[in-house]
Amino acid sequence: MDVERIKFERTGGFAGIRLAADFDVSDLPDDLSQTLRELLNALDFPELPARLTNSESVPDSFTYVITVEAGKWHHTVITGDAPENENMQELLELLNRLARKKIKKH
């Protein structure tokens, strides 16, 4: 999988404020795009189930929607905070930071 685009959305949380970003991986600094690719590989992202954790039963928890695109192929995963999965945590933290930076630019 040679990831080209990532769409990221975070909803819910106590504040209920939506955070979203849609970016080309090639626009990212090399070290970040490298980290991103490594995390997606470590997670075996294309094989992840569409729904990882159920956030409906945890009041005020976040829900994340991550879509990875490569050419015509794409895969979407919905997850909560996934505290048991270190790679997913790292991915979520990285995407959060990128989304915040992206908003800042506008």
Partner: peptide, 12 residues
């Protein structure tokens, strides 16, 4: 809880 975690929740 975590770093950069802008949230609070009740885990049951």
């Amino acid at each position: 809880y975590r770093t950069g975690y802008d949230n609070a929740f009740w885990d049951g």
